[in-house]
C-alpha cells in the first residue's frame, strides 16, 4: 500500500510541471483584484487631508500649505481605505506590489501646478 502510494506520487511528480514558478524566467501574474502599491495622481488632489486622517497606519501625510502629499511605503499595509475615502478619486491601487525598499523614505508628490516640475518624484 505504502509502496504503491509512493510510486504513484513519484510518477505524478515526474510527469507534471513543478508547482512553483521558475521565478526570473516566469514572472508571477497578479490578479485583477490584488491589493498592491498606492498610485497617486497629484493633478487631481485638493490636499483636503482626508486620506491622512483615515489611514490606519499613518503612512500618508498631507501638507496643505506647501501642496505636498507624502507616503511612507514601508508603513502602508495596502488596506485601501485611503482609496475609498478620497473625495477626488485621485488615489488608486495598482495590482502590483511595491518595489522593495532599503530605507524608510517618504515618497513626495508635489503639485506641479504650484511648484516646479523638478520637485516631482
Amino acid at each position: 500500500m505504502f509502496a504503491f502510494n509512493v510510486t504513484k506520487r513519484i510518477f505524478i511528480n515526474l510527469f507534471t510541471r513543478p508547482a512553483t514558478l521558475m521565478y526570473p524566467v516566469v514572472k508571477r501574474e497578479f490578479t485583477r483584484n490584488t491589493r498592491g502599491k498606492i498610485e497617486m495622481n497629484i493633478e487631481g488632489c485638493v490636499f483636503c487631508g482626508i486620506c491622512q486622517k483615515k489611514c490606519p497606519t499613518k503612512a500618508i501625510s498631507v501638507n496643505r500649505a506647501d501642496q505636498k502629499w507624502e507616503i511612507e511605503r514601508l508603513k502602508c499595509v495596502t488596506c485601501g481605505y485611503c482609496v475609498e475615502a478620497c473625495p477626488k478619486k485621485c488615489l488608486s491601487m495598482s495590482n502590483e506590489y511595491c518595489e522593495p525598499a532599503v530605507s524608510k523614505d517618504k515618497e513626495v508628490f508635489a503639485n506641479a501646478r504650484v511648484l516646479d516640475n523638478a520637485t516631482n518624484s
Binding site: T31, T34, V77
Partner: peptide, 29 residues
C-alpha cells in the same frame, strides 16, 4: 516532508482563489 509539501501545494490553489476574489492572500481585507 513530502506529505508536508503536498499539503501546501493544494493550499496554494486556495490562496490563489482567495487573492483573486479579495485582493489579499493572507490578510483578506
Amino acid at each position: 516532508e513530502n506529505l508536508f509539501m503536498n499539503c501546501w501545494r493544494v493550499r496554494e490553489k486556495i490562496l490563489d482563489i482567495i487573492e483573486e476574489t479579495t485582493g489579499g492572500r493572507v490578510i483578506f481585507g
